[in-house]
Design a binder for these strands. Sequence first.
DNA 1: TAATACTTTCAGAAATTTCTGAATATTCAA
DNA 2: TTGAATATTCAGAAATTTCTGAAAGTATTA
Lengths: 183, 183
Amino acid sequence: MRMTPMIESFVFHFGEMGSRWGFNRTVGQIYALLVISEQPLSANDIGEMLGISRGNVSMGLKELHSWQLVHTTHRPGDRKDYYQSRGSIWDMANRVFEERRKREMDPTLSLLRDILLDEAGNAEEAYAQERIAEIHDLLENITEWTQSLQSLSPEKLNTLMKLGSGVGKVLEFKDKLMAKKAD
Amino acid sequence: MRMTPMIESFVFHFGEMGSRWGFNRTVGQIYALLVISEQPLSANDIGEMLGISRGNVSMGLKELHSWQLVHTTHRPGDRKDYYQSRGSIWDMANRVFEERRKREMDPTLSLLRDILLDEAGNAEEAYAQERIAEIHDLLENITEWTQSLQSLSPEKLNTLMKLGSGVGKVLEFKDKLMAKKAD
DNA sequence: TAATACTTTCAGAAATTTCTGAATATTCAA
DNA sequence: TTGAATATTCAGAAATTTCTGAAAGTATTA
């Protein structure tokens, strides 16, 4: 694949984005390149296209492997490794969410839980604990919810997203149905 | 407020978290401090507690203002500004989502749209555009959805979250109801 | 108006993150 | 085995981000 201006602007922007999603600029660029390339790319291809060192490519690919976002493939009679992005865009988004949950949310929740188990030493700590409990509950809710959304089938998830704020209406149905059952 | 070990561990960890959410460590720490302090704090208080310079505190508070996460208050006969966190934890999460959407998602969507408007120069670009279209659609879906969730009342949102993957069941009810209406 | 008490700004320093490339390791064919 | 081709590692360099503190700005009081 050649670096046309179109491809370049996508790849570079995605690099900046990547750094918001938990990996650095280069890793984002490498991933962007692999996503929009129909053919698998060798580490040398990648380094040349992005103008970065071979070592940096190697580190970036290692990171992408740890996020399970790339695949290594081979060609007969060729010792080089060739890299491909793995799964659909949806899978990618899921992986990023999941990985971030594991790396950030889980340790935070565990720290907050520990703090809440401690005895407050004075009124200030007691107040702090109240606020920390709120944060803990919020994070726990969000974590559990996103986890349960991820377990939904893609079609259902899509219905839900298409519903938008119409979800409010659906919840009213649900309340009525529950009320009838209770009769 | 005094910096006890409990408060310290919360504040420092929150600082690390903050840097994942779009602002730097110090900004996260300042915010953490304000959230768990019942009394408003002066810029000097904050600087002393966190062991950072007066200038840094000022820059951090400016950033938090731009995220609309803090309030300035005053005391009679005292020229100092006192700072307080603003709104509930929920409000905070909403602000962070919204602000990040504005700063990151919107520009990305606009770039992707521009790329998709260009004519593909060759087969490679055509393939790239297909993948870019997928990413664009995904981001647009997520953006619209999170926006519509934010417009939901807190109670409804809470019901929805409590529902977890049970939301799948509710969607089935909805389908049945729609089907009946269509009769 | 001047003095005081505070806040903000920003150039350069310090800290942190990322990148390079030579050295080292691995793989595979002969 | 050996050697050629390739991949990985990591110490130090480069780039980037964050922080400091002195100087400049602002608001209030007398």
